[in-house]
Amino acid sequence: MVTLAEVARHAGVSASTVSYVLSGKRSISTSTRLRVEQSIHELGYHPNAGARALASSRSNIIALMIPLRTDMYVPVMMEIAVAVATTARTHGYDVLLLTGEEGPDAVRRVAGSGLADAMILMDVELDDERLPLLRDTAQPSVLIGLPADTSGLPCVDLDFRATGALCVEHLATLGHRDIAVIGEAPAVYERHTGFAERTLDGIRSRARESGIGLLHRPCGGGYDATAATLARILDERPGTTGFVVQNEQAVEPLLALLRQQGRAVPEDVSVIAVCPDQVAVQASLRLTSVSIPAQDMGRQAVERLVAKLDGTGTDEVVLIAPELTVRTSTGPAPSTAV
């Protein structure tokens, strides 16, 4: 393993000069800094993480609290986590994963132990019990999600309220007057998870404005749960011609059930999903969808956190505008078809 002293000899400088180049604590001439950086590159030197942390009073670690719940679509969460990790590395930070189920205890442990320099929280609830702890600590943090009260907390999220409204607007434009929402698992709403609540709020608001009949039914994952939910919807509102699906695990079962019932998509019913593009394009029918910008959310969260660590960040709320991609699963309502 290459040592700092070997880098110093190779560059023809003192060990302290190499240390100053690495830490940035003192101004070093451009020519000397470039010579040291060249030696670091040629020798393949990697500073000892523990020594670096002692010298800088930083761990160079970002804690990421990620949900690993059975009622959440894990691939989306992991895509965000990968984006966080890869972006963090470009800024010289490693990522410590914590499970969301630890809740406030994990926040206390990280804030009180110096395990990490900062935190990113996912799976944010409207009245999240972790947030008062974040506000009480000086440790920088960023939320991927939107609570009811965002004061003092920088947030990054898809604008889920606008997402819900966009789905209804698309179906309304096509002439659909009775719409059903196949939502997340019941526990997601029981926890008042922000993304699900805000999507539903946007759907309801736009449906009222457009004079559209609306049903919302939570749905567990898998074929049987989707079959029960669809049966209930069609029993309560047999004239339903448009479905908004915010539950990745219900997408394919819904399409299969509609085929079994002889309901053609999009001739008889239209289906629009809030889901990753991969889910939409790999379904048995290419779905009209609003994409979940997982990579963008993870990247922006890290960039805002690094800015906070550098003393230049703000507590702004960043909402990513939804983008709807029309594919083959939506069309005119039967009564308006030509």
Results as ranks from 00 to 15, higher is better:
residue 232 R to G: 08
residue 221 G to F: 09
residue 223 Y to P: 04
residue 225 A to E: 14
residue 261 Q to C: 09
residue 206 R to H: 13
residue 256 A to C: 10
residue 244 V to I: 14
residue 224 D to R: 14
residue 254 L to K: 05
residue 194 G to T: 02
residue 253 P to W: 01
residue 206 R to C: 10
residue 206 R to S: 08
residue 182 I to L: 11
residue 192 H to Y: 10
residue 184 E to C: 13
residue 178 D to L: 12
residue 239 G to H: 11
residue 171 L to T: 01
residue 222 G to C: 06
residue 229 T to G: 04
residue 199 T to P: 02
residue 217 R to M: 08
residue 214 L to A: 06
residue 255 L to G: 03
residue 210 S to I: 02
residue 241 T to K: 04
residue 181 V to A: 04
residue 214 L to P: 04
residue 210 S to K: 11
residue 160 F to D: 12
residue 248 E to C: 09
residue 186 P to S: 08
residue 208 R to L: 12
residue 216 H to V: 03
residue 194 G to C: 03
residue 233 I to W: 00
residue 244 V to R: 00
residue 181 V to R: 00
residue 227 A to W: 06
residue 176 H to N: 04
residue 245 V to W: 05
residue 164 G to N: 03
residue 185 A to C: 01
residue 161 R to Q: 15
residue 246 Q to K: 14
residue 202 G to T: 02
residue 174 L to I: 06
residue 169 E to L: 14
residue 264 A to Q: 05
residue 178 D to H: 15
residue 201 D to G: 05
residue 161 R to V: 12
residue 190 E to R: 15
residue 202 G to H: 01
residue 186 P to L: 10
residue 210 S to W: 01
residue 256 A to Q: 15
residue 233 I to L: 04
residue 265 V to T: 14
residue 212 I to R: 12
residue 264 A to N: 02
residue 231 A to V: 01
residue 234 L to E: 08
residue 183 G to D: 03
residue 264 A to R: 08
residue 195 F to P: 04
residue 180 A to E: 00
residue 201 D to H: 11
residue 180 A to D: 01
residue 203 I to K: 08
residue 239 G to E: 14
residue 263 R to F: 02
residue 194 G to W: 01
residue 263 R to D: 00
residue 228 A to T: 05
residue 249 Q to I: 07
residue 222 G to Q: 01
residue 193 T to W: 09
residue 249 Q to Y: 09
residue 177 R to A: 12
residue 241 T to V: 04
residue 245 V to H: 10
residue 167 C to V: 11
residue 197 E to F: 07
residue 213 G to C: 05
residue 225 A to Q: 12
residue 167 C to M: 13
residue 212 I to M: 10
residue 189 Y to I: 07
residue 191 R to Y: 04
residue 163 T to A: 12
residue 201 D to E: 15
residue 199 T to Q: 10
residue 230 L to C: 03
residue 231 A to Q: 06
residue 252 E to H: 04
residue 235 D to S: 11
residue 253 P to Y: 01
residue 217 R to T: 13
residue 178 D to E: 15
residue 176 H to R: 09
residue 232 R to Q: 10
residue 215 L to V: 14
residue 192 H to T: 11
residue 263 R to K: 08
residue 235 D to H: 11
residue 251 V to A: 09
residue 212 I to A: 06
residue 219 C to D: 05
residue 185 A to N: 06
residue 189 Y to L: 12
residue 227 A to R: 14
residue 205 S to C: 13
residue 169 E to M: 13
residue 164 G to C: 05
residue 244 V to F: 00
residue 196 A to T: 01
residue 179 I to Q: 01
residue 222 G to S: 07
residue 251 V to H: 13
residue 237 R to C: 10
residue 235 D to P: 00
residue 194 G to Q: 03
residue 171 L to C: 00
residue 212 I to F: 10
residue 246 Q to E: 15
residue 233 I to S: 01
residue 160 F to K: 07
residue 193 T to A: 07
residue 243 F to D: 02
residue 221 G to A: 14
